[in-house]
């Protein structure tokens, strides 16, 4: 080991020691080993697609149903969700089937079941279109979201969907849920 190597090795040890001394060692095993590499939120941004029901982290941009209807065709959404989103092998996204009176077999739709409008935006951006998820722009996701919400008569015609308006959309079944195990949360 050259002198330079010795010095840098010693410096590394010193840094490691000071890091572990600062950390809490709750379980006494020294598991707070400090192996995680610090990273900034701005460097995580390209991956951070989490949307919360109150609108937290919705991106800039906007869209309307008119644009969304065009995209629905262009992006091939109708292949699985039927013409105009009203059917297809993977289910209608625009439909007016009641939840009540059909027992446990009732079809859960966006309109009759989903508790939050943000879920629509999140799932389109995250997982659609099936063959190429996360290729839509945020404007396109807003437009498709507007197309679905307007088709389901959950927003008045022409309503612009953006970070502000989307979380305010009232979902009919918002209060239709019972928390199964509140003590686990």
């Amino acid at each position: 080991m050259s002198m330079l190597e010795k010095i840098s090795f010693a410096a590394c040890v010193a840094v490691a020691l000071s890091t572990s001394a600062m950390a809490d060692d709750k379980n006494g095993l020294g598991t707070n080993v400090g192996l995680g590499q610090p990273i900034t939120e701005s460097d995580i941004k390209p991956w951070d697609i989490t949307i919360l029901p109150d609108g937290t982290n919705l991106p800039p941009g906007s869209g309307t149903a008119v644009v969304g209807a065009k995209l629905f065709l262009e992006k091939g959404c109708n292949a699985c969700h039927g013409e105009g989103g009203t059917g297809g092998s993977n289910g209608a996204v625009i439909t007016d089937i009641p939840l009540a009176g059909r027992g446990i077999e009732a079809t859960k739709t966006i309109k009759n079941f989903w508790g939050s409008s943000t879920t629509v935006f999140d799932f389109i951006r995250r997982a659609m279109p099936w063959p190429a998820p996360r290729t839509l722009t945020d404007d396109e996701v807003y437009a498709l979201t507007a197309f679905i919400l307007e088709g389901n008569k959950l927003i008045p015609p022409g309503t612009v969907m953006d970070a502000k308006s989307l979380p305010q959309v009232k979902m009919p079944n918002k209060d239709g849920f019972i928390i199964k195990f509140p003590d686990r949360i």
């Binding site: 939840l99 009540a100 009176g101 059909r102 027992g103 446990i104 077999e105 009732a106 859960k108 079941f113 989903w114 508790g115 939050s116 879920t119 239709g176 849920f177 019972i178 928390i179 199964k180 195990f181 686990r184 949360i185």
Partner: peptide
């Protein structure tokens, strides 16, 4: 929000069954 919220006979559903 959808699949793992089991429906009950009265059209209510359990959330966070876990």
């Amino acid at each position: 929000a959808r699949n793992y919220s089991p429906l009950l006979p009265d059209a209510k559903a359990y959330r966070f069954f876990f």
